[in-house]
Design a protein around this nucleic acid. Structure first.
Lengths: 174, 174
DNA sequence: GGACGGCTACTCGGATATCGCTTGTCCGAGTAAATGCGG
DNA sequence: CCGCATTTACTCGGACAAGCGATATCCGAGTAGCCGTCC
């Protein structure tokens, strides 16, 4: 029950891309430098986002990624499922049918497994929260909590500061 | 974002143990045969349940496992966390502080990351559903959907049928 | 001076290695029942 | 026949491997800007 690290990376990148919406495409290298992440692996996450239609990629020398939809139309769930996949956390393998009950009539199993039903209900609650929060909500929350963040990011990116790439160690989880 | 298979196994075993509450301890081998599971690996899951205080183990020749609490006091969340661990699905690594913002004053980050807040909220919703459903609820649901299941299990276990262990292939996910 | 063709540098995109964690297995410590023996 | 010590078989408990997915990296295809040349 661990979400891939790429989910966090993708969400933060989407937030930055929303802040820089009108500034043209942003390349992976700048996003990686800004967040202190490895460009190679971040590239993979952004590819997944592009394949899901959340961001659009433009090739070429001034290329990069930009949001494909306005932030109000990007749910957090969209980003999570783009990286992690749309599968349920819990998979029912119908073990209630694997023991001596194999001989039982098939009609006894028309209704779903009650255990799986509870787990699916929990998964639905999880997705409901993520589906109800959009990128616009996060933007609003950040502007409430740390108002200067958006402006600072815009300044950093538009001024093209590439100095001092602060890399963080890979694979070591604090 | 995948729950270990052991979660499903543990929940089904708890259900059976609840049905056989007054019949004394049930050994791993019988639980494995009944569900068509590998005894060695199931033993590991039951150990985790015992360590969490959900089931109590009795050693010896007629030993096995039995529920340590009445089913009304065993939430589904207890079983899930006993197997999967109590950790959040999402881990905030504070990447907002890793880029050029490293130089920013610490006071700018007193409030939690808005992205992490949404993810934590989703995790809380997930746990809330699992915490609100107890083993007794599942028993009630099964008796509604498949009334004969409990009685059939009781008969199978008390009659001591060990014949024909139906094993299911490991690692192959249908 | 303006337009065009070629070049270059930078970007995304996917194919390719590596590591940790879940999965899977095994054997030893411990215990309670069963058994044989003595009273 | 009853009580007790020994044996025995069965249980849990934890230590020990294997496989797969997440993590991490690299290089090739493609494109847009730039530069030199020609008209």
């Amino acid at each position: 029950m661990n979400l891939p690290v790429g989910v966090e990376w993708a969400l933060h990148c989407c937030l930055v891309l929303a802040w820089l919406d009108d500034a043209g495409p942003v390349p992976t290298s700048q996003l990686a430098t800004y967040h202190g992440l490895r460009p190679s692996y971040l590239n993979k996450q952004l590819q997944a986002l592009a394949q899901a239609g959340i961001v659009s990629s433009v090739a070429g020398v001034k290329g990069g990624f930009q949001l494909a939809r306005p932030p109000q139309q990007i749910a957090v769930l969209d980003v999570v499922e783009a990286i992690d996949g749309p599968q349920e956390p819990f998979h029912c393998t119908e073990i209630r049918r694997c023991g001596p009950n194999t001989a039982a009539p098939l009609s006894a199993f028309t209704l779903p497994c009650s255990i799986a039903a509870v787990m699916y209900e929990a998964g639905a609650a999880w997705r409901a929260v993520l589906a109800g929060r959009t990128l616009a909500d996060i933007i609003a929350a950040v502007s409430r909590n740390a108002d200067g963040a958006a402006a600072a990011a815009r300044t950093w990116f538009t001024d093209g500061q590439h100095r001092g790439a602060i890399t963080r160690p890979g694979r070591t989880r604090s």
